[in-house]
């Protein structure tokens, strides 16, 4: 197995300050939001790597940096050994770009409403002046739609069908890596099942690699081979799927698994999580999870934990064992 994606010490800081004049008048400091802090991970070829986290965990930001839509503030992302932002080899960058695709959450905004489905699907190929004859029709059938749909416009389709069109577009350039940012969050359960099944089938048929970004633990458990748990932009735990779900090490992972509603949770009274996610502009000192952590000790308030390997899991916690 070789790594298709290598992420090393990836950090992204957003400047969310008010405009300069407001800052001067109101005597405000510059506000910096660290969306992603020092994240390192590898994605093996032909596997599904899932990133889970709640809002503000930085999971989508990582996704955008992996596909090259957003430059990192520090650290690097390499896909097939090429850093999209630093490489000087234009041919290699172009080749890698066509190997990366993305599927988005918003079913209405992800397809240009003024374009016919045929043109939408063929765009990745047309943009590189490749041959597009019959391409859209073939891909539509591959994702379970009819080749006649190519002449329609996006508004003529239901949510699930739109996501199939997005998948068809993502497949057009014959990518190796597809970053899926909450691909089924906007879908109803029965349609979600159709889309997840389709994604699994395509992965097996085409040998795809997925970076699967989601807040839904059941979906992640269904899809992933390896899971990374993010909290406030930090990777707090990373493990093979079964290890993570059966034997979580980090207190945040445990809390998340406990809090998620269970389908068989009749009369269950879960241990309730403490507090809420802190303001990412002024994150807590030391381990960012310490104010909500039931195990926290004084050390946690001052010293940010390094990731340690325990069994097959990597955990950033002083106390995990």
């Amino acid at each position: 197995m070789n790594s298709l994606v290598v992420v090393k010490n990836l950090t992204r800081i957003f400047d969310v300050s008010k405009p300069w004049l407001n800052r001067v008048i109101e005597k405000l400091p510059r506000a910096l939001l660290t969306a992603v802090s020092n994240v390192s991970l590898n994605i093996e070829e032909k596997t599904v790597y899932a990133l889970v986290g709640e809002s503000g965990s930085g999971k989508s930001t990582i996704g955008k940096m992996v596909v090259g839509l957003l430059p990192p503030s520090a650290g690097m992302v390499e896909v097939e050994g090429i850093d999209l932002f630093k490489s000087t080899d234009d041919d290699a960058v172009d080749r890698v770009r066509s190997d990366i695709q993305m599927i988005f959450q918003d079913l209405f905004a992800s397809l240009n409403p003024r374009w016919r489905v045929r043109d939408i699907i063929a765009e990745p190929v047309a943009a590189r002046s490749g041959k597009t004859d019959g391409l859209a029709e073939r891909l539509l059938e591959q994702v379970g739609l009819s080749s006649k749909d190519a002449d329609k416009y996006p508004h003529e389709f239901s949510g699930g069908q739109r996501q199939r069109i997005c998948i068809a577009r993502a497949l057009a350039s014959e990518p190796r890596l597809i970053v899926c940012d909450e691909p089924t969050s906007a879908l109803d359960v029965s349609v979600q099942a159709q889309v997840l099944n389709l994604m699994s089938d395509l992965k097996d048929q085409l040998g795809l690699t997925y970076l699967f970004i989601s807040h839904d633990l059941t979906v992640v458990r269904h899809m992933a081979d390896r899971v990374g748990v993010l909290y406030l932009g930090r990777l707090v735990e990373e493990a093979p799927r079964d290890d993570l779900f059966d034997d979580p090490k980090h207190p945040y992972t445990k809390m998340l698994l406990e809090a998620a509603p269970k389908l068989d949770g009749f009369d269950r009274t879960p241990d309730l999580p403490e507090g809420e996610i802190p303001d990412p502009i002024n994150p807590p000192s030391g381990c960012v999870f310490h104010p909500r952590c039931p195990l926290a000790i004084d050390r946690c308030k001052v010293e940010a934990p390094e990731a340690r390997q325990i069994g097959r899991s990597w955990t950033a916690c002083h106390l995990a064992e």
Binding site: R97, F104, A109, N112, I120, E123, R169, S173
Partner: peptide, 26 residues
């Protein structure tokens, strides 16, 4: 900021093409 524009950027479309072909009609 809509995803279809992101998707076009991802493909490597030039800003001019994105403005004229994607954004203008909308």
């Amino acid at each position: 900021n809509k995803e279809y524009v992101q998707a076009a950027k991802l493909i490597g479309r030039k800003p001019g093409a994105i403005m004229l072909r994607h954004i203008l009609p909308n």
